[in-house]
């Protein structure tokens, strides 16, 4: 490390990490490069594509637009923490698989984290609401159709499960 550093404690997907981090590291780079949590993707690295979306204390945020030091004492959920166990998918992930909600999968981590928050706040959305909900996430493959279908399907699965 070449610049100023700080010691931080951060909980990611239920696991607590104590790390020394360079203060100029973005949260995304810290998770990917220092912790090896490469599930969070980086597309544009300036807040446009949404691939790096995580839940920060339960709220969606772009991890390329935060510094790792800002995560000190906070809780993060990434795509790696969505599934209930190693051999089980979250209903939202199942819906993505069943509705062709992904092709190359690059945008998927950001889509899933964004939709976890969205469906938590709006369990019975309209198609238009889903489209606005994912308007901050770019997908180069699917044309969004499959993603919208997956989100609506997931909403139904999550409602039925209650």
């Amino acid at each position: 490390m070449s610049g100023d550093t700080r010691n931080i404690t951060v909980t990611i997907n239920g696991k607590t990490y104590k790390e020394e981090v360079e203060v100029r590291f973005t949260l995304a780079d810290f998770m990917r490069q220092q912790l090896g949590l490469t599930g969070t993707h980086l597309g544009c690295e300036h807040g446009v594509c949404g691939a790096c979306t995580i839940l920060f204390d339960g709220l969606s945020a772009r991890s390329c637009l935060m510094l790792a030091v800002q995560a000190d004492g906070h809780e993060i959920l990434t795509v790696e923490g969505i599934a209930p166990s190693a051999d089980e998918l979250h209903p939202l992930q199942e819906a993505f698989r069943d509705n062709h909600g992904l092709q190359c999968g690059f945008c998927t981590p950001g889509m899933l984290t964004t939709l976890i928050e969205f469906l938590r706040d709006n369990p019975d959305p309209t198609e238009q609401e889903v489209r606005i909900g994912i308007s901050g996430n770019l997908c180069r493959c699917t044309g969004y159709q499959g993603i919208v279908a997956a989100a609506l399907d997931a909403a139904k699965r999550l409602r039925d499960a209650k």
Partner: peptide, 11 residues
């Protein structure tokens, strides 16, 4: 790592 080196303060 993208940002240039800087000193960080959090008052």
């Amino acid at each position: 790592m993208k940002p240039p080196p800087f000193h960080y303060h959090d008052p």
